[in-house]
Design a protein around this nucleic acid. Structure first.
Lengths: 195, 195
DNA sequence: TCAAACTGTTAACAAATGTTATTGTTTATC
DNA sequence: GATAAACAATAACATTTGTTAACAGTTTGA
């Protein structure tokens, strides 16, 4: 697992300087967890206690709407994080659920670890700021796409955002992510080729 | 203007402790600026140099899409901030424009001020983290609404998010914000009353 | 291994939403 | 105060998107 811990250290280092001794202090606290396909990782209305760094596998995040339908708004792939950051930081019930879409292995980061990092690391609060800013920038892009692009345009750009995602999840998940029905996505794909 | 500076101090104090001496050092740096109705405050593709705290007035933020159409995604009202935080923080061209929708008076916060605050204030980085987190949480709510609510539901909840906004801006601005046409919004309002 | 569940496409139809144009009203400007 | 511009409602029509159902191929799990 040292290899994956090293990836996390690199990610942190891309934000702030972290000394060998600091890293030596925190790195042993990461634990590994495995989820099997279809296992629910976070249940809407429960409190999100962890951030998961995905070593391999795929986690989808989805709201349950008023008609009890799942509305997928995110896919988390290898080398990215999956969490409800708001629920995690505030300690409030989650507004969405997360489920493993494949057998998935993660590194677990607990809220206690994060609080300690933010408080005691030399540049801890700065790290926290840069993480929060990065989350914000991600959502910024997403909102821009929702306001300015058609579902088909967003479908075509999915490969850029989530490499090979189209081959890894059922198409009706993609349709949900695009905020359209699976029948409609099937039609759009066909029309797309015709042009 | 002391009254408005006090509001900013209160907002900061709701995030971190800030001493009288610290505040005395930074508060004189805020300046007041006025924009007349329809004045463009930030132009897409230019770099956002300021955060504006709105004393009175109203600022709308909008993308220009591929068809050169304006897509409004935010209204900033009194006692809230208007900026492109990503452009501001990263110093990169803005992905959207901002325009005064009414005669508007603001307190100006420059990037130099913010960098100094984050760096030199005792809890500066923490303040930065909490601000970024708050921005993130706002967008979180917005994305949830876009994924789980109908345009009519979002119309009906606008009064909660933006008090009396429906009386302050033309209806086609609201329609743009809801991601529908003004004709369609007019129909929805009518059907809404019928039920 | 085999039945059941899942998946993607297609068709027919219904509902939602967009487009264009017209009208009367309000608002802005000189 | 007169004129032009902006605005909201409405109608007629076109297009997009959703719904339901059928079908065939695939995967899954007991």
């Amino acid at each position: 697992m040292d290899h994956n811990l090293e990836k996390i250290r690199e990610l942190i280092s891309s934000f702030i300087e972290i000394s060998d001794s600091e890293w030596a202090q925190y790195s042993p606290k990461f634990t590994v967890e495995k989820f099997s396909k279809k296992e629910v990782i976070l249940c809407q209305n429960t409190i999100c206690k962890n951030i998961y760094f995905i070593i391999n596998g795929l986690i989808r995040s989805y709201y349950i709407d008023d008609n009890d339908e799942e509305r997928i708004f995110h896919f988390a792939v290898e080398n990215t994080f999956a969490t409800n950051y708001e629920s995690f930081i505030k300690g409030i019930p989650s507004s969405f659920s997360m489920q493993a879409s494949e057998d998935t292995t993660v590194l677990v980061i607990t809220i206690e670890m994060v609080q300690e990092l933010y408080k005691n690391l030399k540049n801890g609060e700065k790290l926290g700021r840069l993480i929060a800013e990065n989350y914000f920038f991600m959502l910024n892009d997403k909102i821009k796409a929702l306001y300015t692009q058609t579902p088909l345009q967003r479908y075509n750009s999915m490969n850029a955002t989530f490499p090979r995602i189209l081959e890894r999840v059922p198409q009706h998940y993609i349709a949900s992510y695009l905020n359209i029905t699976s029948v409609h996505l099937s039609r759009l794909k066909y029309a797309n080729k015709e042009d």
